[in-house]
Design a protein around this nucleic acid. Structure first.
Lengths: 133, 133
DNA sequence: CCGATTTATTTACCTAATTAAATAGTTTAC
DNA sequence: GTAAACTATTTAATTAGGTAAATAAATCGG
């Protein structure tokens, strides 16, 4: 990748995504599905637009993932006052099955964080912020 | 994503990949295609296995990207002594068109690196190494 | 009020990664 | 020397991201 830094960055990203998918597999979820479930659990019902803006991905990506989550029974869609807009919210199944999944993910995240000191984590956040800014 | 750190990491990864794809677009290439071209330019002819092992991705990913690169005329395949193995190497077109692309990518990388001090870069490398280890 | 523009979502198509399984060639064990 | 095990590559199916363009509803200017 020419530069060592970029090469490493992309590799670690794949490593983290793959590991997260492993953790989510027993729950029948993938990482991008999880990120939407988690967001809905935090924020309550959201429109597609607010989801993709928050996650910083394109709208079609979210459409597809929400479709899948809907067909799996995790979320439902409902028209909002503005009839162009659709509100997405967790179903009963979504709400009920959330806590154990959250626990698994949290435990995975802590395992990774254990490899870094608190200082490392703060430094990493600071450096990541600089990249895009 | 539960944890701020992971969320940021995934976001910056997408940002970097998208930016790199933008830089490569005028040359008719995508980032994963570039990573293989670059590797072949550095190392000379390589088997598929040595490519995916170096890039740390799965074999089918490399098969598909090499297929595309072959149909675009950037690389060629040749059977090795071991007839299971196929050697991939740059075509004349690949060799000739490489330098200006390398220059574009290098300039992009330097632009990102300008946002980080040398110390930042070394710290980031160190932290990234710790994640997987 | 109505045509033009904007906004929210979806559809279609591309690259890119994964796993699982198929194919074909090589090595190894007996 | 052949059956079994291993290795290299490919195929097929899934998730995940992107852009471009279509559709439908809302808003804005006149």
């Amino acid at each position: 990748m020419l530069n060592e830094l970029f090469h490493m960055f992309f590799q670690q990203n794949r490593y983290l995504v793959n590991k997260l998918n492993e953790v989510l597999k027993p729950h029948g979820l993938y990482s991008s599905q999880w990120s939407i479930l988690y967001l809905l659990h935090q924020n309550g019902p959201m429109s597609l637009t607010s989801i993709w803006k928050y996650l910083n991905v394109e709208a079609p990506t979210v459409t597809r993932t929400v479709n899948r989550l809907e067909s799996l029974g995790w979320v439902e869609r409902l028209y909002a006052m503005d009839k162009r807009e659709k509100m997405i919210f967790l179903t009963k199944k979504g709400l009920e099955q959330f806590p154990p999944i959250e626990a698994s993910v949290r435990s995975f995240e802590q395992e990774i964080e254990k490899k870094l000191t608190y200082e490392d984590q703060e430094l990493l956040k600071g450096i990541l912020k600089k990249i895009e800014g």
